[in-house]
Simulated assay, not measured.
Amino acid sequence: MSPDIFYVEDDPDFAFIMQYAVKEVKEDLTVGIVEDGDAAISTLQRFSDEKHRPKLILVDLNLPGMSGLDLVKKIKEMPFFKYVPVILFSTSDDTNDVKSSLESGANAFLTKPNGYNNLLTCMQSLYDFWFTQNRNVL
């Protein structure tokens, strides 16, 4: 079974904190984490084979090996995940990164907030929009 949120993040400390923030937002929300683009593609292929999709995919911009931008392009080329929202989630706030992300097919670009309380607020907003207000075609 695929998680509700599939997160590609190479910083294990941030990934760990993210899991806690998501659980605080909604206890039964699940997060699956992989560390790089290659692992993401193979995991998503397995989800596709099993006919399971996450409700949201978060991708760090700066990943080892395949960049977050290249990963977003590959995800959007996978027919099974075409309509799954993909969000670039990065420490960057550079407008060029935002533009490149959207041109690559990302549905949104979010700058990682500083501090746990700000992360919690960010995750609550993500949940409110993508899980309760946004109407998906899936």
Rank of each mutant, 00 (worst) to 15 (best):
P85I: 02
V34T: 08
S101A: 05
A39D: 08
S104C: 12
A40F: 10
Q124Y: 06
N114Q: 08
V22A: 05
A108T: 10
A15F: 05
F131K: 14
R46C: 03
E103M: 09
K23L: 03
V137T: 15
D38F: 14
S42W: 04
L88G: 04
F89I: 08
F14S: 10
S42D: 02
I57L: 00
N107L: 07
K82A: 07
A106F: 06
Q19P: 10
D93F: 15
S104F: 04
M78Q: 13
T43K: 02
I75F: 03
D60Q: 04
Q45C: 01
F109R: 03
D28V: 11
D93E: 12
N62F: 10
D94S: 12
A40E: 13
E9P: 06
M123K: 07
M66S: 03
D13K: 11
D70P: 09
D38V: 15
T30A: 01
F6W: 06
L56V: 11
K99E: 00
F131L: 07
C122Y: 12
I33D: 00
M123L: 10
F14K: 14
S48W: 15
L69Y: 06
Q133G: 11
G37P: 06
L126W: 03
V34L: 03
F129Q: 08
V72T: 11
L138P: 03
S92T: 11
F81V: 14
S48A: 12
Y116C: 05
M1E: 13
D60T: 05
Y7A: 00
L138H: 10
H52Q: 13
V137G: 00
D10L: 06
S101L: 01
N114M: 03
P12H: 06
F81T: 15
T121Q: 11
E35V: 12
S42A: 01
P54H: 01
M123R: 05
D36P: 06
G65P: 02
V98W: 00
N96G: 04
Q45N: 09
L88P: 09
T43I: 07
W130Q: 09
M18L: 13
A106M: 03
Q19I: 13
T121D: 03
D13F: 11
L102G: 09
G105H: 10
P113H: 02
M18T: 15
K74V: 13
